[in-house]
Write a protein that binds this DNA or RNA. Structure first.
Lengths: 232, 232
DNA sequence: TTACAATTTGTTGCATGCAAGAAATGCTAG
DNA sequence: CTAGCATTTCTTGCATGCAACAAATTGTAA
């Protein structure tokens, strides 16, 4: 299953102090809500350590954009602005497009098989109308695709981005939109086809279209009004 | 003219403790070399503060990939592997391609004028054979282009990437390759043309081609530098 | 009640002490 | 000289105390 942190990958020079991961997960999964105060002293007591390691973790989270440290006032869980969400989806599109292209260039790798199996399971989830399972599979699909690009720097930046997007909550809302669920699965299949035919350009294009479509749904779900122009 | 940090942008929630920026610049500009030990106590004396803020800054730099903290051994300036350099250039291509597309979609903005003027100055630098000035202008061109995309998240990730690439040293060597200098200027002009004609796809394509070409040169230069260290 | 100043409370920022561990050094035996 | 072990040194990891500052609270006067 997953590591202690939410979207974080396996490799890390320092073995990832559990503290940072646990705090990050609390934020990403919504255990603590935007605006909540994360006081060093209180956290230190909760985790039964001193303020120092807590403080270091909070500084990291600030760098990751998950919290805001207001000097001598407090550290607060941050909520991305609508603009930031839009910006991050642009980046998501670029990252996953790049990943699809790189994966297509690599050819037949284990990750490609994983993707095929993912779509098969997704098909069954769609038939059963199991939105919860499907949401999980969607996450796995994108995660596997990026991993398959075999580019650690890309993975690093991608994880950073997705943590800040607090992917789970936004996407699970998105998928409940009518029709989007079946569409999404078909698009995943199209992506696999493009990758399988070892056509990096096509793979990137299809992937980016897919992400753009999802993003639009997600943006709609996050905020009702706000009409955006779509590239094409 | 630059901020305290090297490639960092203006906006930052916390006003960017000077310490972090100064340390970062020391690494990026090569004042301290890869493999060098950055001992907390020594730095604390140099900067006339206690170990605590030094320690926090070093942890940030670890997160940025500039140093490696080996537990209870020391913090060392990190040197990107050849693979990482390759990976980062892939990301650079994606980032700047995205930026070019976004900028093309924005249309006529101040940054576009800055780019035009940059090329004009570059032309003069080429004619005079002033490689040093040209190197600076190249940096400015790419920096302005990304800024012109008006996407702060993109800028954040881009800055993170470029700091780790320690751009200056690699690029300045790159440009000395024969012919590359004039080519580079022409490509910059082509990028501006695509952006001016408000064709995001074309702009992205041309930009990515340009970055790919530069990257290849830079990769060669980096390998060359690598070889020069080994014989000993 | 309202305005406003003084005080109290709560939080982070920084300095410092000490312990844990890794690596270098020296020492001893052969 | 070499190998192996003890010791010393150097470094980070963490705990804690105190100062600086912001914000909330209280008290007071009109």
């Amino acid at each position: 299953m997953q590591e202690s942190s939410s979207v974080e990958s396996k490799t890390r020079s320092t073995p990832e102090t559990p503290l940072l991961g646990r705090l990050r997960q609390m934020i990403v999964t919504g255990v603590v809500q935007p605006g909540d105060l994360l006081a060093e002293t209180a956290l230190a007591q909760d985790f039964e350590v001193s303020r120092t390691p807590i403080r270091e973790a909070l500084k990291q989270l600030e760098r990751e954009g998950l919290v805001e440290v207001r000097s001598r006032v407090g550290t607060f869980v941050r909520k991305p602005t609508q603009r930031e969400i839009h910006e991050m989806f642009s980046l998501k599109e670029a990252f996953e497009g790049l990943a699809a292209g790189l994966l297509a260039r690599r050819g037949a790798v284990p990750e490609l098989e994983q993707l095929k199996e993912n779509v098969a399971r997704s098909q069954r989830a769609v038939e059963r109308g199991d939105a919860e399972l499907y949401s999980q599979l969607v996450h796995e699909f994108h995660s596997t695709l990026v991993a398959g690009a075999d580019n650690r720097k890309l993975t690093e930046h991608y994880d950073l981005l997705m943590n800040q997007l607090a992917y789970h909550r936004i996407v699970s809302q998105t998928l409940s939109l009518p029709g989007r669920l079946q569409n999404s699965k078909d698009e995943h299949q199209a992506i696999i086809d493009a990758i399988s035919s070892k056509d990096p350009l096509a793979a990137e294009l299809v992937m980016r279209r897919h992400v753009a479509a999802s993003s639009q749904s997600a943006a709609l779900a996050a905020m009702k009004e706000e009409d955006e122009e779509q590239p094409g």
